[in-house]
C-alpha cells in the first residue's frame, strides 16, 4: 500500500470516503470515551460552580480529543502510507491548495470556538462568584471592612478572609476567628477577601473556584458549597518563600453542625493559629539561616479554632 493517487479513476473516492467515514466514527467514539473519563480527572465537585465548570471542561475535552486524535491519526497515516521508498527522489503530488477546503477549515474552527466562547461566557455569568472590588487607603487609616460591598443574595456572611505571608485567617460575622474555613452546606457564603502583604490566590480545587487577593483592595466573592467534607484551600498565586506551605482546609458541614461549631468556637480562648511557615522558618534559623533571602513569616493569627492540620482531606 504505497501512496495512491485518488483523483484519476472514478472508483477510488468511494473507498476513500468510506475510510474517512470509518476513521471519523472511530475518532468520535474514542473522543466520547475520553470525555466520559475526563470527569474523573477532577477533584470531587463540592460547590454549585463545579457542575458547570465540569460540563464545560468535558465538552472541551471531547472536542479537543476529537481534533487531536483526528489530526495526529492523520499524521500517523501519512507517515505510514506516504513514505518515500529508500532511493525514491521523486516529488509528491504538486497540489498547491484548494480554496474551498481552506475556507471550510477556517469556518468550521471558527464556529467551534465561537460556540465554546458562548458557552464559556454563559457559564461564567451563571457562576457570578466574583463581586465588586473596592480599593482602600492602606496608609490613611481606612480598613477593609469600611469599604466592603456585600453580596446582596448571600445566605451567610460576610466572612473576612485575610491572607498573609504565610497563613490564612477567617473571621465570621459573630467574631469567631479560625485557621480553617468552616462553611454551612447549601448556603451562598459571601467572603471579603483581603491581603496584608502581597498577592495571594484563594483556591479551593473542589469548588473549582479561584480568586487572586490584591493588597489594597477588598474583593467580594461568593461560593455555595454543596457537599460535606474536608477540602484543601491553597494559595494559588506565588507569594514568596513559603508559598507552597500556605494552605489550609475548608470544612463544609451540615447547617446544624456548622451552627454548633460556631457556638463552640465562640467559647474557645484565642490560641495561635495554623502557620506551618513559622515552624519551617524557625528550623531554618536554627540551622544557621542558610538559603536565599526571605521576609520573615507573619506571626500566626490568634484564633478560636486552630483546626486539625493533619486531618485527611478529600481533595
Amino acid at each position: 500500500m504505497t501512496s495512491t493517487t485518488p483523483r484519476p479513476s472514478g472508483g477510488l473516492p468511494v473507498r476513500l470516503l468510506l475510510i474517512v467515514l470509518a476513521a471519523t466514527l472511530l475518532d468520535a467514539l474514542a473522543s466520547l470515551q475520553i470525555a466520559r473519563a475526563s470527569l474523573g480527572w477532577l477533584p470531587v465537585p463540592a460547590s454549585t460552580a463545579a457542575p458547570y465548570v465540569d460540563q464545560l471542561f468535558q465538552l472541551e475535552v471531547g472536542i479537543g480529543a476529537f481534533i487531536f486524535l483526528g489530526c495526529s491519526g492523520f499524521v500517523l497515516w501519512a507517515v505510514l502510507f506516504n513514505r518515500a521508498e529508500k532511493y525514491d527522489e521523486s516529488d509528491g503530488l504538486p497540489i498547491e491548495g484548494n480554496t474551498k477546503l481552506e475556507i471550510t477549515w477556517t469556518l468550521i474552527p471558527f464556529v467551534i470556538v465561537m460556540v465554546l466562547a458562548y458557552q464559556a461566557i454563559h457559564v461564567s455569568e451563571t457562576l457570578s462568584a466574583l463581586g465588586p472590588k473596592a480599593k482602600y487607603d492602606l496608609e490613611g487609616g481606612s480598613n477593609p471592612v469600611s469599604v466592603e460591598q456585600l453580596d446582596p443574595i448571600r445566605n451567610y456572611g460576610p466572612i473576612q478572609v485575610i491572607s498573609r505571608q504565610w497563613n490564612w485567617e477567617f473571621i465570621y460575622p459573630n467574631g469567631v476567628r479560625s485557621s480553617e474555613l468552616h462553611l454551612p452546606i447549601d448556603q451562598r457564603a459571601n467572603f471579603q477577601l483581603s491581603s496584608e502583604d502581597v498577592i495571594h490566590g484563594f483556591y479551593v480545587p473542589a469548588f473549582r473556584l479561584k480568586q487572586d487577593i490584591i493588597p489594597g483592595s477588598v474583593i467580594s466573592y461568593s461560593i455555595t458549597p454543596t457537599r460535606e467534607g474536608r477540602y484543601r484551600l491553597r494559595d494559588s498565586q506565588f507569594s514568596g518563600a513559603y508559598f507552597s506551605q500556605n494552605q489550609t482546609d475548608v470544612v463544609v458541614q451540615s447547617q446544624e453542625a456548622f451552627a454548633a461549631w460556631l457556638e463552640q468556637a465562640a467559647r474557645n480562648p484565642l490560641v495561635p493559629g495554623l502557620s506551618p511557615a513559622t515552624q519551617l522558618y524557625q528550623d531554618r534559623l536554627s540551622k544557621g539561616d542558610k538559603g536565599w533571602a526571605t521576609v520573615k513569616p507573619a506571626p500566626p493569627p490568634l484564633v478560636n479554632d486552630p483546626g486539625i492540620p493533619d486531618a485527611p482531606h478529600e481533595a
Binding site: 471542561f57 458557552q119 464559556a120 480545587p205 473549582r208 479561584k210 494559588s236
Partner: peptide, 19 residues
C-alpha cells in the same frame, strides 16, 4: 493548542489557572 483553548475559556481557567 487545544489545552490553550481550554485555558482561554474563563470558567475552566479559573479552576486550572496557576496550576
Amino acid at each position: 493548542g487545544i489545552t490553550g483553548i481550554m485555558l482561554g475559556t474563563a470558567p475552566v481557567d479559573i479552576h486550572v489557572g496557576n496550576t
